[in-house]
Amino acid sequence: MSLLEVSGLHAAYGPVRVLHGLDFVVDEGEIVVILGANGAGKTTTLRSLSGTIPVDGEVRFDGAPIAGRKPEDIVRLGMAHVPQGRGTFMDLSVDDNLRLGGYTRPVSEVEEDKAHWYEVFPRLAERRDQAAGSMSGGEQQMLAVARALMCRPRLLLCDEPSLGLAPLVVREVFERLAEVNQRSGTAVLLVEQNANLALGIASRAYVLENGSIVMSGSADELSEDEAIRRAYLGM
């Protein structure tokens, strides 16, 4: 049994159907990337997993069906979502953002975890009392990841962490994601346009086009694939 099993996932915004029956899995501890261009349905996929939008189809997390459950319940099961645009609590301090990330956990653990993530992300420690919205995009992305990890998730959903960041910063964000995955064993489901870096840290990948999965395989296989190289790697 995989940690996350999705079959026949459909989603729509009103009359506009966006996802047309996706099937994919994420295993315990692995990094999986869903590649896709703008409008392919990447964000919608993650939003339907975390319960932010209504869905049709089957989503099993750790064996239990979660389709149709509310986001505040799904996070308690151990699935954390870093939304597109990072979802930072802009006018709250960095420290408050992290405390909120640990909202579902006992207070004693929250303090411990905060100290841990401050060690992993020293830039956040320097800015702990600063309003989160006043930090740079890269710092905010780190904060969003750290905040999501505060709930000690078994699966981290990450929506285009590269969006709007300078190439060097993007590289750092991906390195950190890989590091976190290795250290804590948290599985990561990443949706990205930046295939190069994403395939570099992922073990497997799916390619999403117009709301359907058109290709899947190991990250190595896909980075060798001619069509992928042309469409997403710019080669």
């Binding site: 932010t52 505040e72 609590f89 006018d91 709250l92 909120l100």
Partner: peptide, 16 residues
């Protein structure tokens, strides 16, 4: 304060 700041993110971190 969180709900005032960002309602969707509040739900994602588990606030009712």
């Amino acid at each position: 304060r969180a709900v005032a700041s960002n309602r969707e993110s509040s739900r994602l971190v588990g606030l009712r």
